[in-house]
């Protein structure tokens, strides 16, 4: 479809704002991050960016960021899919209510959410008490102020993105496709794997893109639930910028995050275009 002149002119202000507020920060980030460390050095100087990969803390933060983002994405996908499937099969009344429940985390501030999790996951919190009562553990285990806390918090925060992306495609599936498969001899399990999953692939891909990129760039939740000993790239960046006031190092981490983002989107687009070739 060719966009008419009228919508194009309407979109111009926003597109211009986007250009300014996306391109400008990126340029500034690159300028600062690639600034020469020595007086005599020349721009661009990759010492700082490479330093992120070289330093122990930088490397740990990088690995942790990727690990947490992957785990959060996987959990959102595996746990969110059945929820989305269930909601899509509910009647309109229940669907509305359940959707409200799903979107609820968006309505609470990150601080309140983090506080809630700290209480629930603390040494004397519900989670530890429950695990002890079930006899799975003897003494309370650390569930916050570490990676587990970050994973739980981010999963809670990002699950709605996955569920909503999946619901958008699930709702549009023609029930006759399932019936057609059934009449051809496919059991419900077979219908799920061979018909429903492929039909929801676009939603899965959208959800993955959203959840992974948001998990990678999340700050407040990992900051509040991760504690000081489990830095990820964003919290490390914050430390450099506002504790050590080393803007050059902070910008270098920013560049690493940018590279990660571009890398992920590129891989994602490649997978999507291969997987979706037949969808039209």
């Amino acid at each position: 479809m060719k966009a008419g002149r009228f919508p194009a002119s309407l979109a111009t202000p926003v597109l211009l704002a986007f250009a300014v507020f996306i391109v400008a920060p990126c340029v500034m980030l690159l300028v600062k991050g690639l600034e020469p460390t020595a007086e005599t050095g020349e721009w661009p100087d990759f010492t700082n960016v490479l330093g992120v990969f070289d330093s122990k803390i930088g490397q740990q933060a990088l690995n942790r960021t990727i690990r947490i983002s992957l785990i959060v994405t996987a959990v959102c996908m595996l746990a969110g899919y059945p929820v989305a499937l269930f909601i899509s099969r509910c009647g309109p009344r229940w669907r509305g209510l359940l959707l409200a429940v799903v979107i609820f985390p968006f309505l609470i501030s990150a601080v309140v959410r983090a506080f809630g999790w700290t209480v629930l996951l603390g040494d004397s919190g519900l989670a530890n008490k429950g695990l002890i009562a079930l006899g799975l553990i003897e003494r309370p285990i650390a569930l916050v102020q570490n990676e587990i806390g970050i994973i739980v918090g981010e999963t809670h925060l990002l699950m709605p993105y996955m569920i909503l992306s999946l619901l958008a495609v699930l709702q549009r599936i023609d029930p006759n496709l399932r019936h057609a498969a059934e009449s051809l001899g496919a059991s419900p399990v077979s219908v799920f794997w061979r018909i429903v999953i492929p039909l929801t692939l676009p939603g899965l891909l959208t959800g993955t893109l959203l959840v992974f990129s948001l998990a990678m760039t999340a700050f407040a939740t990992p900051f509040l639930l991760g504690g000081g000993r489990t830095p990820i790239l964003t919290t490390l960046l914050y430390d450099y910028a506002f504790t050590l006031f080393d803007w050059r190092l902070a910008a270098a981490i920013g560049i690493v995050l940018l590279i990660l983002g571009i890398l992920f989107v590129t891989i994602h687009r490649f997978v999507s275009s291969r997987g979706m070739r037949s969808y039209g």
């Binding site: 006759n176 496709l177 019936h179 009449s183």
Partner: peptide, 14 residues
């Protein structure tokens, strides 16, 4: 073991 042809054909698009 029935064959069904639907009004909108319901072919598997992928």
């Amino acid at each position: 073991n029935l064959g069904v042809v639907f009004q909108n054909y319901a072919l598997f698009p992928f």
